[in-house]
Structure formats: structure tokens, C-alpha cells
Design a protein around this nucleic acid. Structure first.
Lengths: 346, 346
DNA sequence: CTGAAAGCGCTAACAT
DNA sequence: ATGTTAGCGCTTTCAG
């Protein structure tokens, strides 16, 4: 760490002196001024103004034991997690909401298991009031690390349970994957489609699992051959579509677990000379702008409010923090609604 | 801000007591243990271990006046700044180097002029030891805000001078844009090309300006019609190439100010039935993996070590911080070398 | 409603 | 080499 930093700034003491009040009163004013008479409030405010006083964060943290900072943990098991547009939106929401709560965003970039120690120490060291993390894979170690150091944390996306057995209930914010999937499939049904296939996402991500569940909720007796496995990439979607077509040439609709795979499916369909939606209707999931708009035809999909989810993560965390010692009971997670966005593909 | 946070943790006092030494000695050991005898060091270390002691950051900051945190300012004048792969790499380098320096990365997301106040207050509030920012456009207000609050800051990319007149010299890290451009053009010359065009980047970004300067360094008497204006996007590259071809059908090479525009140029060339590199040789700039590898033919380009630049930004900042009061003289910036990466396009 | 005083946990002179 | 002693700047009882 560097040696030096902030040049000495005016202290509360100085403000108090200038305003002709005690430090205590000055402090009260700075913190909202409740219970201080107008004339004094004004005097202090003016002194603050004139001196350009800014409270010393460290001193305040030392006594209040809250530091107005929240860690956002970014794990990077695969490439590009950071430049994922999905991710960007969520972090943006988080950033905005954190600002609204006067808290700072401290970025914790986890590059691998080698970083776990450092992260645990940091989180356990009380440098932040809480943490926000994202559940990427079921085998992720993060959830257990987090519950070990007991720092209040909210997850983005329902965490898979590496320690489900250990009975730890981590609060999370997720969209209604299952309900959204149901809506997508119901829409296809309402269009009169009778052979609705599904291109599933990775089996180790809860979102994909929930979506396939939603699909099955509606199509109780779905033909297993109508479900094909993908991995959320465009390529896998194209491949899965090809497989489906081979197994069930008569299918007339497909619900893909995300937009990327849907766009891959569209490509395969086009190559086979099948018309969308006439021959095969296609619905995706996510409403990812970059995909959805450039697809041909424009993709009907299920939208989730990603930025809103980011904001909700913060709100939920703040609630947990404010509950303090008391309400130690498992904090409720929140599931946000999805909406079907009709475009041309279904 | 939340009310509560870290449950009470063991203090240095407790460690000292358990180890049977004074707080001062315990402190010395915790901070490296210089000048403390082995047996005591061991005792203290053990006590730390047993108690699971972690230093209280706030207390330490309060007295040392350094807080082990550096702000990374992300301005978002346009979309997607965050998901820019370029950006991601740089932040990754920063994150890694900061970790190596035991400092935390605090993310400051600036969404517009409305945030300027907040940022200035935060930066001026001494919450961080220093800041890292990126120079995006010459009309960016950030540089002046930063120099106003006088927080030690290092820029990524040479800042344009909104306050050049005010004589503020902001330290920065940038690659040798001009030299890299020269190398690119010289390469084209060495290939025997005689009519080398340039697709320039935005006039309000220093990198683009430096690159065109490099181009001119080599082609002292360059035909002005051989230079066309783009804006760093694929589309603009395609358009600029079309223009160039119209004005100077005989051109046999083009140096684009970045890879994106080079790929646009490639497209136009292909559409016109021109062969690359046989008819027209093409060189880009950046060596952006996602572009360079998918281009046809693979793009010859100028590589800059982006992650390394991120790391250098941190090192430079740390140096500035350590110099402290003394060396207030204009801190040296650093220019990193570029390398020409030969692929098939030139 | 306001002020006096007691720390929060740690480091850094200054003694010893 | 180790311990003693002041604070760092702020909030917060507790008196008045």
C-alpha cells in the first residue's frame, strides 16, 4: 500500500469552532441535523460550506462499524464474464442503487481458486458491509466461502447447492425462470402448435433447469425426444435444432432456453429451408438486445428486467443489513416477474 | 447506509494480551515484524492465528491516512463502454496489480454530468488513495474535475487537453500510438506498396490523432485524398474504404486506425472483388482478439499490451503516491511499445 | 436542546 | 528490542 494520500482536510472540530458550537452539535447537523435548532443548524451548515468540510470516512466507520461499501464479487470461470452484456446491465443496476444508498461498490475479481483465500480474508475482514455475488455454476465454491465468513450476501440468480445439504439458505434475486418458460410455451400452445420442442441450457445452471421445468409444467406428457441439450451458445443452439429436426421432423415450434441458442436454431431452420414462424415458431429467453434485434425474423422472447434485478439485489442486501442481529432467520429471496415479448418469430 | 455490519472481532489488544506483549509489539509483528525478536514474533503470530485476528481497516486508515483503495472511474458517454473487450482487459490488469499492492478497487461509474458532483465529492473526500481514469474524449470533463479535487490520478490513454491551457499535466499510460502507426506504414512500404491510404479514427481521441501522425511521419508527402475519416466502428471503416476507393482507385494498401475499421474495410474490399493482400494490403491497430481472428484473411495489425497497460497504470499511481509531498513535479507518464503482428492481410 | 467526555482500534513517537 | 502514551476524527451516551 502507498505511504501517503489525502492532504489534511478540515475536521469536524474546525467546523464546530467556526460555527461556535460543540463538536457534538456539529456532528448532529452533519448527520441530518435532527434535534438541533435552526439557527445553529444554519451556522454549522455555513461553516461546513466555507471550510469545504467532508467527513472522514475512516473515523466514522471506526465508531459506527459500518463502512458504506459493498463488495461485488465477479468470478471468472470462463472468458468474458465481464464483457457479457447481461452482466453489464446487472452491475449497472447495482451501481445505481448502491449510489442511492450512499454505498460504494468495491469490485472483487476472482480469477480462480487461488484467489479464494484472499477473498475470504477480505470479506471476513469487515472491509465491506455486505457482498453481492452471482451464481454461475452449481459447483462454484463461492457460496460456501461466503457462508463461512458470514458476510451478509445476496446472490444474483438462484445458487445451485454445493452445500444444499449443509442447509445454508442464501438469499438471492432471480427472475421467474420457470414461470417465464411456462408463459413462452403456453404462447406456443395458444398459437395452435402441437409439437413443441425445447432446447435446454447447461444442466449445472439453475436458470436452465428452472426453464426446462417450466416447459414440462405445460407439456406434462412431453415427448423426451423433443428436448435437446445446448450450452447457451449460438452454436449449441444450431446443433440442438438440427438434432431435433432429425428426431422429430414434424415439430412445429421450439422454445430455446436463451436467445443465443434461439438464434442458432433460427440459423439451422433457415438452412433447412424451413420458414419461421410458418413452419416452426421460435421463442427465446432473456430478451438480450444485441441478439433479439438482429435476428431474422425478430425473436419473440421472454424478457427479464436485468438492471432491476441488480437494484433489487442491493435493496435486499440493505434490508438484511438493517435487520441486524435480530431477524437472523433465513432472509427471503425475491423472484422478479418476466414478460413475454412478442415479435415475429412466434 | 446500513446500520449494522461486522460482528465484533478480536482487537490487537486481545492479541497482545494473549501473546503477553504490548499492543505496540503486536502491531509491529502484524505489520511485518521488523525489529522484533523471534520468540515474540512467533508468540504474536500464534495469538493472531488462534484468535483469527484481522486488523481493523478503518482504525488503521484513521491513523496512517492511507486506505488501501483506489478508484477506477468508468465514464459512460456511450453505450457498452463496460463490455468493451478492450476495457475489460485493462481493468483486469488493474485489478491484478492492485491486488499485488494490497489495494482495493473501488468502482466509480459515471453515467453523466449529473454524477460529476458525487464523484468530485467522493474523490475529494479522501475515500481512496488515488484514482485511475480513462481518457475517452477530448471534451471530457473528468480531467478537470480530477485536477480540481487534487486526488492523485493516472489516466489510461493520453488525455486530450480540455485544460491544456491551464497547464495541468496529468500522468498517463498509453501505448506508442504514433510509433506503432509508423511501424505499420513502414511495413506496408517494405511490401512495395506505393499508394498507402489511411482510415482515421475520431478526431477527438488522442490515440487516433497520434496514429494519423505516425502515418504522416512515414508518408511525409501523403496525398490528402488518401486519408478518410472513420469513427472506430466497423461500419465507418467500410464506408471510409468505399470513399477511398472512389477517390483513389489505384491505392494498394490501407492502414486503419483500429481493427474494427480494418474489418469494415476488408468487407468493402471483398464486395468490390478486390483481393487482400494481393490487390490491397490491410493493416489494423489494437490486435483485438475477437476481430482479428475472425477476419478473412486474418488481419495484420499493431498489438498493444492492454492488460500490461492496466498494470502500469497502477504502478505509476503507486509511485506517485509514494513520492508523497516531495516530488510534486510533473510525474512522468509512460508509453508502452507496440509490436506489429503479421498475419495474412499484409 | 446542547455540551463534555469517553472511546472505536490502531500506529508512531518517545521512553526505557 | 519492547513498552508507554498520545492521539487519528468521529459518534454517542450522559449531564446539564
Amino acid at each position: 500500500m502507498p505511504e501517503q494520500t489525502t492532504g489534511s482536510r478540515p475536521t469536524l472540530e474546525a467546523v464546530a469552532a467556526r460555527a461556535g458550537v460543540s463538536r457534538a452539535t456539529a456532528s448532529r447537523v452533519v448527520n441530518g441535523g435532527a434535534g438541533v435548532r435552526r439557527p445553529l443548524v444554519d451556522k454549522v451548515r455555513q461553516a461546513v460550506e466555507e471550510l469545504g468540510y467532508v467527513p472522514n470516512h475512516a473515523a466514522r466507520t471506526l465508531v459506527t462499524r459500518r463502512n458504506g461499501a459493498v463488495a461485488v464479487i465477479i468470478a471468472e470461470p470462463e472468458f468474458r464474464i465481464f464483457s457479457d452484456p447481461f452482466f453489464e446491465q446487472q452491475v449497472r443496476g447495482i451501481s445505481r442503487e448502491l449510489t442511492a444508498h450512499d454505498s460504494q461498490l468495491v469490485l472483487l475479481w476472482v480469477e480462480g481458486p487461488g484467489d479464494h483465500d484472499r477473498i475470504a480474508r477480505y470479506l471476513g475482514g469487515g472491509h465491506v458491509d455486505g457482498a453481492l455475488a452471482f451464481s454461475l455454476h452449481n459447483d462454484d465454491e463461492l457460496p460456501s466461502i461466503i457462508s463461512r465468513v458470514k458476510v451478509p450476501t445476496v446472490f444474483g440468480g438462484r445458487p445451485g447447492w454445493p452445500g444444499a445439504t449443509s442447509g445454508l439458505a442464501l438469499p438471492y434475486v432471480d427472475c421467474d425462470n420457470r414461470g417465464g418458460a411456462r408463459e413462452a410455451v403456453r404462447h406456443l400452445v395458444s398459437l395452435g402448435r402441437e409439437h413443441i420442442a425445447h432446447i435446454a441450457g447447461p444442466r449445472d445452471q439453475t436458470s436452465a433447469l428452472d426453464r426446462i421445468d417450466g416447459y414440462r409444467d405445460v407439456l406434462l406428457d412431453a415427448d423426451p425426444d423433443l428436448v435437446s441439450q445446448g450450452d447457451f451458445t449460438v452454436e449449441s443452439g444450431a446443433r440442438a435444432m438440427a438434432e431435433l429436426l432429425e428426431r422429430r421432423p414434424g415439430l412445429d415450434a421450439v422454445f430455446a432456453s436463451n436467445d443465443l441458442m434461439a438464434s442458432g436454431a433460427l440459423r439451422t431452420l433457415r438452412e433447412r429451408g424451413l420458414r419461421v414462424p410458418d413452419d416452426v415458431a421460435v421463442v427465446g429467453f432473456d430478451d438480450m438486445a444485441s441478439v433479439v434485434e438482429s435476428t431474422d425474423p425478430p425473436l419473440t422472447t421472454v424478457r427479464q428486467d436485468i438492471e432491476g434485478m441488480g437494484r433489487l439485489m442491493v435493496r435486499l442486501l440493505m434490508r438484511v443489513l438493517n435487520e441486524g442481529e435480530q431477524h437472523t432467520g433465513a432472509p427471503a429471496s425475491v423472484i422478479t416477474p418476466t414478460t413475454l415479448v412478442r415479435r415475429a418469430s412466434a
